[in-house]
């Protein structure tokens, strides 16, 4: 119990330290670009493929339920609302945690296990500024882009199923969607969610990597902890954010 509180305090101090030292990494932006490639570009495939399938399933299930009430033209609204508000941010963040978060943890943990971080300190290079901060910022930047792509591809998947395959009227599919989705209320709130998730997932990933015990077992345990903790944190934060943002206002 005391140990976990101790660890939480250490994690908070580590987070603040990362923020304080990120000035250096912004001056060397090529480091962030390199990490953007590894966390953002390499996550594109999994995000796009799962977004497409999630959208297609939503289209099928939405049509199946809505046609009982003769409201099958509202299937676009249903697909887009559920993607923009919930599934886009949450599923993209879960995939991001298991695709990119685990990689960040394993990389930093292995650097620690092979004494690369200690060697950097020896050369008066701060490992937090050189290794941790660029990875943190790359994750924070790529998360909103990935979630937006997920939502757009998902809506396209819903369109493929509902309009192309089943034959819902195309005009009412788009116009009902545009009528029901408000830019500030739905989309901006969804983007705020993804930014919060991006900070949470990458902060957990870099901390677990930095804190891993320098053995093969320690690194594997840290990687598992990253995925488990960030998934739980994403779902918990999502509930908190949803209850703050969408209090039955619409």
């Amino acid at each position: 119990m005391v140990d976990s509180i101790w660890r939480l305090g250490y994690a908070s101090r580590f987070f603040l330290l990362t923020l304080l030292k990120s000035g250096t990494s912004f001056r060397r932006f090529d480091l962030i670009i390199r990490e953007l490639y590894f966390t953002g570009v390499l996550s594109l495939i999994i995000i796009i493929v799962s977004g497409l399938f999630v959208g297609m399933v939503l289209g099928l299930q939405g049509y199946e339920t809505l046609q009982r009430f003769g409201a099958e033209s509202a299937v676009g609204t249903m697909v887009a609302l559920s993607l923009v508000r919930e599934l886009g941010p949450v599923v993209a963040a879960l995939l991001f945690a298991s695709r990119a978060g685990s990689a960040i943890t394993a990389e930093i943990g292995l650097m620690k296990a092979t004494d690369q971080l200690a060697a950097m300190e020896m050369m008066a290079v701060d490992p937090i500024a050189r290794v941790v901060a660029p990875r943190f910022w790359a994750g924070v930047i790529s998360m909103p882009f990935l979630a937006a792509l997920f939502s757009v591809v998902g809506v396209f998947g819903g369109y493929l199923i509902a309009v192309v395959l089943i034959g819902v009227d195309e005009g009412s599919f788009w116009s009902q969607m545009q009528n029901a989705i408000d830019f500030r209320y739905d989309i901006v709130n969804g983007i705020i969610k993804t930014c919060v998730f991006g900070v949470a997932v990458t902060a957990i990933a870099v901390f677990e990597g930095y804190d891993a015990s320098p053995t093969a077992e320690g690194v594997s345990g840290a990687t598992t902890r990253t995925v488990v903790t960030s998934s739980l944190v994403i779902l918990g934060l999502d509930f908190v954010l949803t209850s703050v943002m969408f209090r039955g206002m619409s």
């Binding site: 882009f145 792509l149 939502s151 757009v152 545009q178 830019f183 989309i187």
Partner: peptide
């Protein structure tokens, strides 16, 4: 080539945000 891919990624992300705002949301209407 890494820069090129990151450029693609950022462009796709911004494009997706624009699509969300204009095509899916009602900002354009």
């Amino acid at each position: 080539t890494m820069d090129l891919w990151v450029g693609f990624f950022v462009m796709a992300g911004i494009g997706a945000l624009l699509l969300l705002a204009l095509k899916i949301g009602n900002l354009g209407t």
